[in-house]
Amino acid sequence: MLAVQQPTEVPSPLSVPSNAPEHCPGTESELAGKSAACAGCANQEICASNTPKGPDPALPFIRERMSTVKRKILVLSGKGGVGKSTFTAQLGWAFAADEDVQTGIMDVDICGPSIPTILGIASEQVHSSSSGWSPVYVQDNLGVMSVGFMLPSSRDAIMWRGPKKNGLISQFLKDVDWGTLDYLLVDTPPGTSDEHLSIVQYLKESGIDGAVVITTPQEVALQDVRREIDFCRKVGIRVLGVVENMAGFVCPGCKTESQIFKPSTGGAKKLAEDMGLELLGSVPLDPRIGKSADYGVSFLDEYPDSPATTAYLNIIDRIKEILGDA
């Protein structure tokens, strides 16, 4: 006889609890359990109770789920739009190029998930099974999880405050059936706030192998990246190195290289020196990188001759070397 097991339900991020009254203020609201609409709701007591919570009950489950994941790498940057998601995707594709290497990508940018588009799987959905939510597979050995798969339409905005975002991140770690992985890459949103603190807190026990910090050459980006490195030091995450993106642009007309984002303060090289970190490499700005991301194809496979591909591959080799996996 087959045992009937209860699948873990995939939540709809836009809804309030299914049994909530009509004007439910939302379980994360300050009025939860206290507003007029809450009178008579079955969950009122839970919402209204302010009892301090003990250690997160999810932690043991996360530890168990993560015990089959060999390496966990964060991709960070204080600044937005410097190419975190693009780099994460290339890194994922490069790892997965080896058929025997199992790779996972987890997108914790809840308000602006780009990973599904960049990997060309934007219209996929998450399925649930008895062993948890099944990631979306780009290829046999590259599984992806992102909030983008859970929205009815890509137009929908997720307007969540911190605690709700943290809840979803914990579920990504606890309820997703990652299986046995050689690498789990975590793509983060810009800044140093809830998402970053949560991922670090949840993975503390299982251990984070390191963080790759992405930047662009101009000072306005570098100052945010310095803050991100300061954050890594505060929470005790090893920084594997710094990647400089969008460095130099070769005009397709006259082949002259010019600096769109001028390294007025010495760029990533100076930053790495000042902070005592390794500069893993500089990737030139190639408009085809952005195009590939828009169309959801692998830049490394599409344009193997581009100088940017060489730069990417060198960086990825260096990361493997630092991790001792080369």
Binding site: R155, D156, A157
Partner: peptide, 21 residues
């Protein structure tokens, strides 16, 4: 926004946000 599809998608979310509020 910038003209890439990836950025436009997020800009669309932002527009949905402004409509909601």
């Amino acid at each position: 926004t910038t003209p890439q599809a990836v950025a436009l998608m997020d800009a669309m979310k932002c527009l949905s946000f402004t409509r909601t509020v």
